[in-house]
Amino acid sequence: MSDTDTQEGAAAQRMEVDPKLLEILVCPVTKTTLRYDRERQELISDKARLAFPIRDGIPIMLTDEARSLDDE
C-alpha cells in the first residue's frame, strides 16, 4: 500500500459531519450539547465523560460504542 492510498483512506474516514446535524444532536445519556472533536472524529459529552465515534461521517450515538473519557 502506498502513502497515497493511506492518505486517501484517512481522508475518507474523516468525512465531515453535516453542521446542521451537529446543532441538533445531544448526548443520549445527559441530553446536553456535544463538542465536536474533528481530529479524533468524535462527539464529546463532557458531562457524561463519553466520546461517541463518527464513522463515515455518521455519528454513532450508542453508549455501547462510546469511549470513556475517564480512561485518559
Rank of each mutant, 00 (worst) to 15 (best):
R14F: 07
M15R: 15
T32Y: 03
V26Y: 06
S68K: 01
T30I: 08
S2V: 10
R49G: 00
P28D: 04
L69E: 03
E16G: 14
L62C: 00
D5I: 13
A11S: 13
R14T: 08
Q7H: 14
E16F: 12
D46C: 02
G57H: 04
T30E: 13
E16M: 13
K20P: 01
E23A: 13
V29I: 14
V26R: 12
K47V: 08
A48L: 05
R67T: 10
L25N: 06
L50H: 00
T4D: 15
G9M: 14
M15I: 11
A66W: 04
D5C: 09
I60A: 02
S2P: 14
S45M: 00
D3E: 15
D71K: 08
E23W: 04
L34N: 07
M61Q: 06
Q41W: 03
L62I: 03
L21S: 07
L25I: 12
S45E: 00
F52T: 03
Q13N: 12
P19V: 10
M61L: 11
D3Y: 12
P53N: 01
L25A: 08
T32A: 08
Q7F: 15
Q41A: 02
Y36C: 05
T6V: 15
P28Q: 05
D64T: 12
D3M: 13
I44D: 01
S2H: 13
A51P: 05
P28F: 05
D64W: 05
E16K: 14
P53I: 00
E72P: 01
F52Q: 02
L25H: 07
T63Q: 08
P19E: 08
E16S: 14
A11G: 06
A51F: 05
T32S: 11
A66C: 02
L69S: 03
I24E: 11
A12W: 09
P28H: 06
A10L: 15
M15K: 15
S68W: 01
I24M: 14
Q13T: 12
I60P: 02
L34A: 09
I58W: 06
T63V: 15
T33G: 14
Q41Y: 03
L62N: 02
Q13L: 13
M1R: 11
D71E: 08
P19S: 09
V29H: 09
